[in-house]
Design a binder for these strands. Structure first.
Lengths: 158, 158
DNA sequence: TTATCTGCAAAGGCTTTGCAGGTCG
DNA sequence: CGACCTGCAAAGCCTTTGCAGATAA
């Protein structure tokens, strides 16, 4: 297991589901809330699409010029380790960070520009794996990624 | 669009569905079949789990000591560009290569050791996205990744 | 106060690329 | 023969880390 730079233990691994406000939840956990961490949390919450670390840094930097990339990366990694943020990795291998861990959902991605959005598909609850298809695994969930082309990309040539 | 090192045009983008043998299909496409490329294709076909580029290189190197990592990476990228191999990117961001493009299927992954297997879920065909959930995208498909823990990892502590 | 966090810059893992030489068809 | 492919080594991206100074509680 990774050390997550030593700041967290795996005991802190269950997201509190009583409140939709990430910053509040972090405070309630007793997370040391520096200006940098608050800004990262705010940026994540303020978006309806899912951002890369670079995106988060860019937006955070506007609000707090002194923030560093390392801190953004470290903070995101810790939020994921705590279970307060979910990571989605598209085929390009660049991680996106999804702050919405309170409501079950899946994703829709533009295969052209990599835009990633939340969706709530129909029929999703009927998806199961037969025992013969489980190969002895303990299966605890699944993610669906819908693939398509977004409105702005439809017009473009490449 | 990427250039795929210039060897392929986007016109060569549809996988031939008439034969399960990758090497045969490549030959039929008129792909210049060097020893290196043949070995990469063979390694992919011979596995029932999906390998990383590093795995492919290791196995290929056993069969053909002179093969280089660069060639493995380039060959894999080209196979993907041709549509003869599919890429799956787990949360760790390390790409896995799936030679089975002829039969629709989804994946089951061990979240501990990252082992990736093919599966054919029940109810999968009922999954759809309502128009209100499409946000103007043209949606052409979806991937499902089942998450779990494999038999060998169940016994371990970490 | 002091354990924890931050910024910087360097390092690390995976993948791509420039180029000179070799090879398939 | 000639277009295409390979290996090597260097470079590129994204992400992590060591460390000294700063800071929340």
């Amino acid at each position: 297991m990774h050390t997550y730079r030593g700041y967290y233990t795996s005991a802190m691994n269950l997201a509190d589901t009583s409140d939709g406000d990430l910053t509040q939840r972090l405070k309630r956990r007793g997370w040391r809330l520096s200006a940098q961490r608050r800004v990262v949390a705010e940026v994540l919450q303020g978006e309806h699409v899912h951002l890369t670390a670079e995106d988060v840094f860019a937006r955070a930097h506007v609000r707090l010029a002194e923030i560093s990339q390392a801190t953004v990366y470290n903070t995101l990694r810790e939020l994921v380790a705590m279970g307060e943020v979910r990571v989605v990795t598209p085929p390009d291998g660049v991680k996106r960070y999804d702050p919405n861990v309170l409501v079950d959902h899946h994703h829709l991605m533009c295969m052209r520009c990599q835009l990633l959005k939340d969706v709530h598909p129909d029929g999703e609850s009927g998806v199961t794996l037969a025992n013969s298809e489980r190969f002895g695994f303990d299966v605890w969930g699944f993610d669906i990624i819908f693939k398509g082309v977004c409105p702005s990309c439809k017009g473009r040539s490449t």
